[in-house]
């Protein structure tokens, strides 16, 4: 269900493709992104622009992805709405993930660090 685009610099933008990233689809999301990482992509931006709600399972999947990337590359998130940002904050995930207002910001920042 996820949509991905990879630019010339090798930065892959992922859109979860669900309005709600929750226990119902978290595992599928993690598996899909894992497949991309295993396909060689390691500079990932997950864009939450079209996601209205994330639960603890969704956050867990994201942590799983981060661990998969490990030292090979980088993971950033962008476009968090107020509720999703609050969820990140309550779960102390704002300290784990680099968050950016928009996908463009995220890509730009990541390109700078390549």
């Amino acid at each position: 269900m996820i949509h991905t685009t990879t630019d010339d610099a090798g930065i892959t933008v992922i859109r979860p493709g669900f309005e709600r990233l929750t226990a119902a689809n978290a595992k599928a999301f993690k598996d899909d992104v894992t497949a991309i990482i295993e396909g060689g992509e390691a500079q990932l931006v997950v864009d939450f622009k079209d996601v209205s709600f994330v639960d603890s399972s969704g956050l867990g999947a994201l942590v799983g992805v981060l661990k998969k990337i490990g030292y090979r590359g980088d993971l950033a998130v962008s476009g968090l709405n107020a509720d999703v940002a609050q969820m990140f904050k309550i779960c102390r995930m704002d300290r784990v993930f680099k968050t950016h207002a928009s996908v463009n910001d995220a890509v730009e920042k990541m390109a700078e660090n390549l």
């Binding site: 942590v63 661990k67 102390r92």
Partner: peptide, 21 residues
């Protein structure tokens, strides 16, 4: 408490979230 959950744990936040909210 959510403070006690390992930031890199993939689960275990459910009840902490409920208690905090």
């Amino acid at each position: 408490s959510l403070d006690d959950v390992d930031p890199l744990a993939e689960s275990g936040r459910g009840l902490g979230l409920i208690m905090q909210c």
